[in-house]
């Protein structure tokens, strides 16, 4: 049977992708950030997941204001890296896992979560920067990927509670898939940041630390935190953190913290990263 073997969370700043693509990862500004992912790259090379279920948000790339799905699952064979205005990132095409994606779609919808099904979709830095951070710069990504896009562009995004419970439904779906597959679930975006208006540049290390601690040890209660607290404390774009609760919901109540990294700044953003495993 398929099994969720680990959960990963990481931020996804576009400038991180640009730094890597332009060969600046050893620059003094960027080195501390990329050094923080060296452990993770070794770890994932040993773990060898077959599939990553990658929860991320689209940044007005695949979804314009014509159609704004709250939850959209990528069921295609492959997904092209998008041109976000600076030209497409020079990264490999993302290979999907259409059979598993179809199974998860059916199971999750039958668990009362109404997903939008994407049979064609381009993916932006929200998806490709986490892949670059975890896998570096390979010629091809070393596993299949199921992109799962969450609306955090137009307010309100789904609630933390909804995300957490969705994670549980995804777990149930993966557990009931009749093929031996190692599946990781990733939650991306965050941590504290604000990209707009006179309050741009907001960072809240105290909030971020609290969020990381409670994500690991007190996730059920953390999932009740209302949007307004994210926006006020972690910035208007900090609300992306609800996506981490989807990842967390797909793990056991008790988890082991395999790794944690936190760094300020990457451009305008606080970068957070954790690797979690079930204890059993």
């Amino acid at each position: 049977m398929a099994k969720i073997t680990a959960g990963v969370a990481t931020s996804h700043v576009p400038a991180i992708g640009a730094a890597l693509d332009l060969g600046k990862s050893a620059d003094p500004y960027w080195k501390p950030l990329f050094d923080g992912y060296e452990f993770s790259k070794r770890w994932i090379a040993a773990e060898k997941p077959d599939v990553v279920f990658l929860v991320y948000n689209d940044h007005a790339t695949a979804f314009s204001l014509d159609c704004i799905p709250t939850f959209a699952i990528g069921c295609a064979e492959s997904f092209q890296p998008a041109d976000e205005g600076w030209g497409p990132r020079p990264v490999p095409v993302v290979e999907g896992a259409p059979q598993l994606a179809a199974h998860i779609t059916q199971s999750v919808i039958e668990s009362d979560f109404d997903l939008t099904i994407m049979n064609r979709m381009e993916v932006d830095h929200g998806l490709t920067v986490p892949l670059s951070l975890m896998f570096g710069q390979p010629k091809a990504w070393p596993c299949k990927i199921i992109p799962f896009a969450v609306n955090v562009v137009q307010y309100p995004p789904p609630s933390g509670r909804r995300c957490y419970n969705l994670g549980k439904a995804i777990r149930k779906a993966v557990d009931s898939y009749d093929k031996d597959l190692k599946v990781q679930i990733w939650g991306t975006g965050g941590m504290s940041h604000q990209l707009q208006g006179p309050r741009a540049g907001l960072i809240n290390r105290e909030f971020d630390t609290m969020f990381l601690d409670r994500l690991i040890n007190d996730a059920d209660a953390l999932s009740m935190m209302p949007h307004i607290d994210y926006v006020r404390e972690a910035g208007s774009e900090g609300v992306e953190l609800v996506m981490w609760l989807i990842m967390r919901g797909a793990l056991d109540a008790e988890v082991e913290e395999v790794y944690r990294f936190y760094h300020v700044p990457a451009s305008n953003t606080a970068v957070g990263h954790v690797i979690l495993k079930n204890k059993s």
Partner: peptide, 30 residues
């Protein structure tokens, strides 16, 4: 051909260098 940091600095009314320095010092306090 501009970055998010360029635009963010512009919106705060700060010079880009001052804004970048603020971020290096841990960002804008809440």
């Amino acid at each position: 051909g501009k970055s998010f940091q360029y635009a963010a600095a512009l919106m705060t009314g700060m010079a880009q260098e001052d804004y970048a320095n603020m971020m290096l010092k841990g960002g804008r306090s809440v």
